[in-house]
């Protein structure tokens, strides 16, 4: 039985709506074929606040466009998951991922490859930072002084803000972080983690060391209130990954061209935005350890 029907007064509105939807559908379907000049769309995991990222990646878009001779567009993402999903759905073809999201993305998009990483990325570390009110001292290795405190990770899918620190914590304490700390949260991104620890909302947090160092350098964090109490062992992290099927659209050898464009990026202004000293070549197997750890933590099936 029909249960609802539009009021007759808006019957015309209804017809127009149908027409509008049909029109939209009509126009959006051939959008792919419409674009005679294919655009390379790229994105990045939102590991820091957004205005910062927008500024950074629009410059990169201009640079890549010049180097590659194709249109390049940056689209911002609201979450780590959205970045991976967009890559998977071919809404973006190239992305600046963390170690973990890169692994996720390359698993769900067969044929995709990690092409470049920062010079710092093969030996990346996380900082554990603490609010000064906790009076925690810097420790060489993890110890029991941090037990019972409140603790925040960054994003749930962050390598430096979750996966690797959780791995090291579990390895050391042999129990879940929820048992070690009195409360465990996820701030969402590194900037937010720093803020929350600085404000005292959480006693301790773990962050990407490049983001933290940059925040200190730019005076964005009050070092009287926050200090580093632990530095994690090194692990591989960020990377640029690209879909394998881009060569169908942009021609054979395109992946190599993109890789080269990054490798010869020397402009300190562009590089400092990441911040990285330079980019070096990378391959999927460089991130095997991240993948293995993710499986151990059951973050991957």
């Amino acid at each position: 039985m029909i249960r609802s029907k539009r009021p007759s007064a808006s019957r015309w509105a209804a017809k127009i709506a149908v027409a509008a939807i049909a029109t939209t559908a009509f126009f959006s379907l051939p959008a792919e074929t419409q674009a005679q000049q294919p655009t390379l769309t790229f994105s990045a995991i939102p590991n820091q606040d957004e205005t910062h990222l927008l500024d950074r990646f629009n410059k990169i878009a201009a640079y890549l466009s010049k180097e590659l001779g194709v249109q390049v567009k940056y689209v911002p993402m609201k979450s780590y998951a959205a970045a991976v999903t967009s890559f998977r759905n071919n809404h973006v073809q190239l992305a600046w991922f963390g170690g973990m999201t890169g692994v996720q993305a390359r698993i769900v998009v067969p044929g995709s490859v990690a092409i470049v990483q920062g010079e710092e990325d093969p030996k990346f570390v996380s900082y554990m930072i603490a609010n000064s009110a906790t009076r925690l001292k810097e420790m060489k290795t993890l110890d029991n002084s941090i037990r019972g405190k409140t603790f925040t990770f960054g994003s749930k899918a962050s390598t430096s803000g979750r996966l690797m620190p959780e791995y090291f914590l579990r390895q050391h304490y042999k129990e879940y972080p929820e048992k070690v700390f009195s409360r465990v949260g996820f701030s969402g991104d590194h900037t937010k983690t720093i803020e929350l620890v600085e404000s005292g909302a959480y006693d301790i947090g773990v962050v990407d060391y490049t983001v933290y160092n940059a925040a200190v350098k730019n005076g964005k964090v009050d070092t009287k209130k926050v200090s580093i109490i632990w530095t994690s062992p090194p692990y591989p992290d960020y990377n640029w990954s690209i879909r394998g099927d881009v060569e169908k659209t942009f021609g054979p050898g395109f992946i190599k061209k993109v890789q080269d464009a990054f490798l010869k990026m020397k402009d300190p202004e562009l590089l400092s935005a990441f911040p990285r000293k330079s980019f070096i070549a990378a391959s999927n197997k460089d991130f095997q350890i991240v993948e293995d750890n993710a499986r151990k933590l059951k973050l991957l099936d």
Binding site: T24, F27, S28, A31, E32
Partner: peptide
């Protein structure tokens, strides 16, 4: 509808 169209957004696949 016009606005939506002009916004573009990722194509539907």
């Amino acid at each position: 509808a016009v606005l939506l169209f002009s916004l573009g957004g990722p194509p539907f696949e």
